[in-house]
């Protein structure tokens, strides 16, 4: 029997926790909340495969684990491949009468480094082969675990320890990889962007991802106070703000073709200016220097354009 997703507070309070206290994620990190919300969507027996990264390291420092689900980590770039092995093995052993559970959900989790960059080949392979796996990327915008280095998920204008803002550089100059759409281009049955602030949207989408046959992808925006130089208490607010400025709009893509803007993004009358987002974080403060005024302007135009393109894809005039 599948358990319902918990969307109302009373139901959420009853749902078993999957990640306990005592983990060593930084204060204010949004990733544990993301995992908690994932837990609210679960429908029964689940196995988690994780890549190397903040969440992996800080939740399983031997001899302690914060995980209450069967959980495996092998390496940085291979959770999608490990998960492929898990799901196929479970399925075949069930056929052979060596696996008693009727159904097991397999979830792979990776950060932006493990997903956008080093693990991308494995993810693409997993999608192409069509395993019934939910892959969730918690995207905190850089290799935060190794000390805030730029990744394919880093925003332009963001300062990291490998994309310094200096006299001649405004931080990262390149675009962020459009990962959700790249994943969708595999004709993946279900792709959704989420953030932990909009928790009901998150849980609803994660549940859809579990229920869809074949692979599904969840791109979760995950504020990182340590790396972003933001206030620890502001993480949920920043997740919302990133949606409001258009840096992490909320939408779904079905079968790679059908786009649907999600409520919080759909209800925006217009995007808030990027300045509102940038001023909350030390990693963007250099952008307010006069020498980067033009660069800043170009980034705003880029986001405006992306927003219009996305709206068009979603059928919004």
């Amino acid at each position: 029997m599948t358990e319902p997703a918990a969307l109302k507070l009373k139901d959420m309070l009853k749902k078993p926790e999957i990640l306990t206290s005592g983990h060593r994620m930084c204060a204010g990190c949004a990733a544990p909340t993301i995992v908690k919300l994932m837990g609210m969507a679960l429908r029964g027996p689940t196995i988690v495969c994780e890549v190397t990264g903040c969440l992996e390291v800080a939740t399983t420092i031997y001899p302690y684990t914060a995980w209450k689900l069967p959980w495996i980590h092998v390496a940085f770039e291979n959770a999608a491949a490990v998960a492929s092995g898990v799901i196929e093995a479970v399925d075949v052993m069930r056929e052979k009468g060596r696996w008693s559970k009727e159904h097991v959900d397999v979830i792979a989790i990776g950060g932006d480094g493990g997903t956008f960059d080093i693990g991308f080949g494995a993810i693409s392979g997993m999608l192409e082969r069509g395993h019934d796996i939910v892959y969730m990327c918690y995207d905190n915008g850089a290799y935060q675990n190794t000390g805030i280095q730029r990744s394919g998920g880093t925003f332009p204008g963001q300062e990291t320890t490998t994309s310094w803002a200096g006299k001649v550089s405004p931080g990262k100059e390149q675009r962020k990889k459009p990962l959700a759409e790249i994943v969708a281009a595999h004709r993946t049955p279900y792709v959704a962007t989420v953030n932990p602030y909009h928790h009901r949207d998150f849980i609803t989408k994660f549940r859809k991802a579990l229920e869809v046959e074949g692979p599904a992808f969840i791109h979760a925006f995950s504020p990182c106070p340590r790396g972003w130089r933001s206030q620890t208490g502001k993480s949920m607010e920043l997740a919302k703000l990133a949606m409001e400025v258009g840096l992490h709009p909320l939408y779904e893509i079905f079968n790679g073709t059908e786009y649907k803007m999600s409520g919080p993004s759909r209800r925006l009358k217009e995007l808030r200016p990027l300045d509102d987002y940038w001023k909350t974080q030390g990693q963007f403060k250099h952008l307010f220097k006069p020498e980067w005024a033009d660069f800043k302007k170009s980034l705003q135009e880029q986001v405006n354009d992306d927003w219009e393109i996305l709206k068009k894809k979603c059928g919004i005039e």
Binding site: A27, Y62, A66
Partner: peptide
Amino acid sequence: EIPMAGNIIEPGNATKYKTGGWR
């Protein structure tokens, strides 16, 4: 005297590690 291969066989035993001291 410890489980094989680093396997942690007690789920959620991180609660033994108190992080309140970080506050």
